[in-house]
Nucleic acid binder design. Structure first.
Lengths: 142, 142
DNA sequence: GACCTAGATGAGAACGATTCTTAAATAAGA
DNA sequence: TCTTATTTAAGAATCGTTCTCATCTAGGTC
C-alpha cells in the first residue's frame, strides 16, 4: 500500500498520467534490486497484465527516463537497462556474464576537451569499467 | 603504395590472412578521419567491391579488433563504431547530432569497487561524456 | 607452378532490440 | 457525465548484427 502510493505520487508529481500499467512498471523498478531490461519488466508483469504490450513498456520507461524518475543505462551491445538510482553513478560490467554493479567515483574526472570540440557543453558522463566479476573469476579454471 | 603496404604488413604481423577485402577495410580505417561504422565502410567500398557482403565487413572488423588493430566503441544505442586509435582514450558524444570526439583523461580515474563486487578484475574502462557539441550549440536558437 | 586445405567470402535468412502505426480504450479535467 | 487528449495493444516495420552454408581462395607444400 505504502509503496504503491509512492509510485502513484511519483507519477503525479512528474506530471504523467497515472495508468495501471505505468504504476506497475514504476513500482516494479522501485522494488527491483538491480538493473532491469524491458524484457525483465515485461515478463515479470505478464501475470498481472497479460495483455500489456512491449510497446507500452518501452513507452513508459522512455517517459520515466525523460522526467528523470529512472535512468537508462546502455552498456555493451545488449538490451538497455533501467535504473531507479538516478544519482550520478557508474558501472562495472562483467565481460563474461554481463553482470552489472554500481560504483561511485571518489572524485570527479578531469578532462581536457580537445581543440576540435572547443565549447562542448558537458551534460553528464558515465564510466563503464569492463572486467571479470568475482563469480566468473572463481569459475574459470586457470 | 606506401599506405597500401602498411595495411598488408599490419595484417601479416597480426597473423591474419591477407585478402583484398581485409586490406581495403583496414586501409579505409587507416585513412578515415573519425569513427567509422560498418555501414560507412561498406558503402564506401561498394565501388571497389560491389559484391562484398556486410557480413564480410562485420567479420573483418571483429577480427581486426580481436588482434588489437582497431578498437570497437559502442556509444549510445546506434551502430558500433571502429577506431584506428587503439590507445586508451575516451569520447565526447553529442546528444543532438551524435558527433563523436576523442579526449584523454588528465589522470586515471579512482574508483572504489563496491563490496558486492569485491575482487572484480578490471580490464579497462571507457568514459562517455554526453553533451552538446559546439556546432549544435551554435544552431540552437536559445 | 599445381595442389590441398583451413579459412574467408557472399547472399540472404534469422535474430533481438526497438520503433512505428493505427484503431480502440481510458484518464482526468470541464 | 461528457469530452478530448493520451495511452494502450497488437503487430508490422526497422535497424544493427549474427548465422548458415555453399563456394571460393590464400598461402603453405610438393
Amino acid at each position: 500500500m505504502q509503496a504503491q502510493k509512492d509510485a502513484v505520487q511519483l507519477l503525479k508529481h512528474a506530471g504523467l498520467r497515472v495508468t495501471p500499467q505505468r504504476e506497475a512498471i514504476l513500482q516494479f523498478l522501485l522494488d527491483y534490486d538491480g538493473h532491469a531490461t524491458v524484457d525483465d519488466i515485461y515478463t515479470s508483469l505478464q501475470d498481472r497484465f497479460p495483455s500489456m504490450s512491449v510497446s507500452t513498456v518501452y513507452n513508459t520507461v522512455k517517459q520515466l527516463s525523460q522526467v528523470g524518475l529512472v535512468k537508462e543505462i546502455g552498456v555493451g551491445d545488449g538490451a538497455s537497462r533501467f535504473d531507479i538510482n538516478v544519482e550520478p553513478h557508474h558501472h562495472l560490467v562483467c565481460t563474461r556474464c554481463g553482470a552489472l554493479f554500481d560504483f561511485y567515483l571518489e572524485e570527479p574526472i578531469h578532462l581536457s576537451v580537445p581543440p576540435e570540440a572547443e565549447g562542448f557543453e558537458i551534460e553528464d558522463y558515465h564510466v563503464e569499467v569492463r572486467g571479470v566479476c568475482p563469480r566468473c573469476k572463481k569459475q574459470q579454471v586457470s
